[in-house]
């Protein structure tokens, strides 16, 4: 049986969202209100299991009277606030953020982004062929379990937060460098096997761009056989220990190609350990089939 802590009752906050009066609970963000109202605000660095870092700024909205735009993902709704999600200024910033990111990073495996680029009329190519980009950073393939392609990384900090004090408490990775040269790295930017990494894969779970991926996914993509439409997802329970974490098995051609975990599970919130995340080989390495 699960018990859900109720906490103190939260007050209702009334504010104006795109001209309509809406109500949310105290502490809710503008994004929460947008989601409840069925508005689709693009987000990249926001993660449903993490404290907002509000680093990407693709979710900005206009709050009347404020000098700057506000990140919807982290700004709390306040009584009487007047918020416009589709104002000219907000749309301009979203378009430019998409252009800046798409011109400096490989977004080919970032879900939704192609649609947003079209929706906002973003033209990443207009910065010219010489625009600086990190897209050329090579893939770090240094272990059997997962691959780091920092050419696809948008520096959302989510993997670092998941590895650090928000979930895993392993602190294997951190942000290194400064400005355009920042990257995610273990100490001295060395290989993962030399680091503190315990291969829980919780960083992969939250990465919004595919910069972190299962080795199986990476290799299938390279071979051109990765096909999400042909995959099924089955949520089951990890058989290794008594905790009973939920696993979501992504299966293609009758083989497990990736393992996730439901973010709404109140105990694990999408997190697993190495056994649940990567310990599925025994299911398919049946003698004679390899």
């Amino acid at each position: 049986m699960t018990s859900v802590p109720l906490g103190l009752p939260r007050r209702r906050v009334e504010f104006e969202l795109d001209g309509e009066t809406v109500h949310v609970l105290e502490g809710d963000t503008i994004l929460d209100a947008c989601t409840a109202a069925g508005k689709d605000i693009p987000t990249l660095c926001y993660g449903d299991t993490l404290t907002p870092k509000n680093a990407c700024r693709v979710c900005v909205v206009e709050v009347e009277g404020a000098r700057t735009l506000a990140p919807a993902c982290s700004r709390r709704a306040e009584p009487g606030m007047k918020v416009r999600t589709g104002s000219e200024r907000a749309r301009h910033s979203r378009r430019l953020v998409l252009e800046l990111l798409a011109s400096s990073t490989d977004l080919s495996t970032t879900p939704h982004v192609a649609g947003w680029i079209e929706e906002y009329g973003a033209e990443p190519a207009r910065f010219g062929p010489d625009a600086a980009t990190v897209a050329g950073r090579g893939a770090k393939v240094d272990n059997d379990l997962y691959v780091r392609e920092y050419g696809k990384c948008i520096m959302c900090y989510k993997c670092v937060d998941a590895c650090g004090d928000q979930w895993q408490n392993t602190f294997a990775i951190a942000v290194a460098g400064r400005g355009f040269d920042t990257t995610i790295a273990v100490e001295h930017d060395g290989p993962l096997p030399d680091s503190a990494c315990v291969y829980c894969g919780n960083c992969i779970e939250v990465c919004p761009t595919g910069a972190l991926s299962f080795r199986s996914e990476y290799e299938m993509r390279a071979a051109g056989t990765w096909d999400e439409d042909a995959q099924t997802e089955t949520t089951t329970i990890c058989a290794y220990c008594g905790v009973g974490c939920n696993l979501t098995l992504h299966v293609q051609d009758n083989r497990i190609v990736k393992v996730g975990s439901p973010h709404d599970n109140p105990i694990t919130r999408g997190n697993l350990c190495i056994k649940g995340r990567f310990g599925y080989q025994h299911v398919q390495n049946v003698q004679g089939t390899e």
């Binding site: 680093a55 400064r178 400005g179």
Partner: peptide, 25 residues
């Protein structure tokens, strides 16, 4: 500003680079 941007947010991290490139051009 390109050198001194901390790199946390996209408008500044990439924007300062794009501005410098345009000014060179």
């Amino acid at each position: 500003f390109r050198d001194e941007s901390c790199g946390q947010c996209v408008p500044c991290r990439v924007g300062t680079v794009r501005q410098e490139e345009a000014l060179h051009r």
